[in-house]
Write a protein that binds this DNA or RNA. Structure first.
Lengths: 218, 218
DNA sequence: GTCTATAATCTGATAGAC
DNA sequence: GTCTATCAGATTATAGAC
């Protein structure tokens, strides 16, 4: 219902102390929402608990977010902004050879997902009942995924199907790890092997020199 | 902890008409639960709706299942029994060459999952709030997964890590398909490519027919 | 075996006082 | 901006009549 003109990842700077305080509270609420959701599951978030967690009545939360879905939406957006930051943080691997860089990226992606399974579910699965991201937040998601595609391009992989395949492989490993062995590393140990396997298929030119093809090293 | 001797998939036969009718009603309730869950999501199941769907009051459902979790548990078990039947139905591919059989199996697995996304979530993801399968149902799941491992063994793949990797790849493709492109085939089209890729890694001997095998024989 | 009645609790959300 | 009060409903589950 509200005007959804907000351009992705471009929050207007607060205009005064009032607005600054308000933004701070919004951030605090969002942060509390993440804590609750990690403890009770994505669908288990309730406005009551959320209010209590920030020292308010549930009703007061509505002064900051107009609905529960708006909170999910803000979490979705924030999650993708974190994913964006994650991508940017990988820039320091630009010096690595493409194959090594790909391997590095794979491990980092796996870590990004498994360190916060709930965030992973919110961003990459459709597990939440009636929630659909707003156009604005979805636009952020698409932008970030485009940047991920750029990362693939940087190591010479531009075929969209190849990128889909690679992402599917890593999300598959991730979700198996989260669902079936959350405390250990049964699938994490397969990341290297998956990388080698993928390289053969989608970037064989990267292997034409000295082919290390290490398997199973952690 | 409990005696896990209970042999999966061996319900005692009903002892009389009374019990037969009761079992029929239980089946009817379960079937209605699947319908509801497909429409409203796994977590959206309510006893009210379920009762209404079978022409009862919600309270009467408790005469057949002692709790909502018991219904989830029965669905979990039934899902794995269907998966078991799915495996058995693949026996007619025994005549195929191993690589072709593997390919066939991959496509069938993808179909099994995508034709009922909710079942897929219940069986292979941990998306449901507070539900844990009972020891009995979990034993069924383990048995069926063992049979799946036997299928891999039949085409010469016995390394547990290799099986984990293959399953992760196919569940990854599946869940991407379900979450991001439910009406079309963006990831389904990648199944063949994934199969080829996997074969190179985990069963190269199946591809060595035309080249001098210098890797050593079995 | 199904019902009515109801407990006990949770939910998201709104109105309006201060 | 936070509160009280409250709506209007949902939920699972139990007790006991018939």
């Amino acid at each position: 219902m509200a005007t959804v003109h907000a351009i992705p990842a471009a929050p207007a700077p607060p205009r005064g102390r009032r607005e600054a305080q308000r933004d701070r509270t919004r951030v605090e609420i969002l942060s509390a929402a993440w804590v609750l959701v990690r403890a009770q599951g994505l669908a288990g978030l309730s406005m009551r608990d959320l209010g209590e967690a920030v020292g308010m009545r549930a009703q007061s939360v509505y002064s900051y977010y107009p609905s529960k879905d708006a909170i999910y939406d803000a979490m979705f957006r924030q999650g993708y902004e974190e994913f964006d930051a994650w991508i940017a943080a990988g820039a320091d691997t630009a010096a690595l050879a493409p194959a090594a860089r790909f391997r590095h990226m794979a491990h980092r992606f796996f870590d990004f997902c498994t360190t916060d399974p709930v965030r992973y579910m919110l961003l990459f699965q459709r597990t939440i009942p009636g929630f659909e991201p707003s156009p604005g937040s979805y636009a952020v998601a698409l932008t970030v995924l485009d940047e991920l595609a750029d990362e693939f391009a940087a190591i010479g992989v531009t075929d969209p199907a190849a990128i889909d395949l690679a992402i599917a492989v890593f999300t598959g490993l991730t979700s198996q790890q989260i669902a079936n062995d959350p405390e250990r590393d049964r699938w994490e140990r397969l990341v290297d092997r998956a990388v080698s396997m993928l390289l053969v298929d989608l970037a064989p030119h990267l292997l034409d020199r000295t082919t290390p093809a290490t398997r199973g090293t952690t």
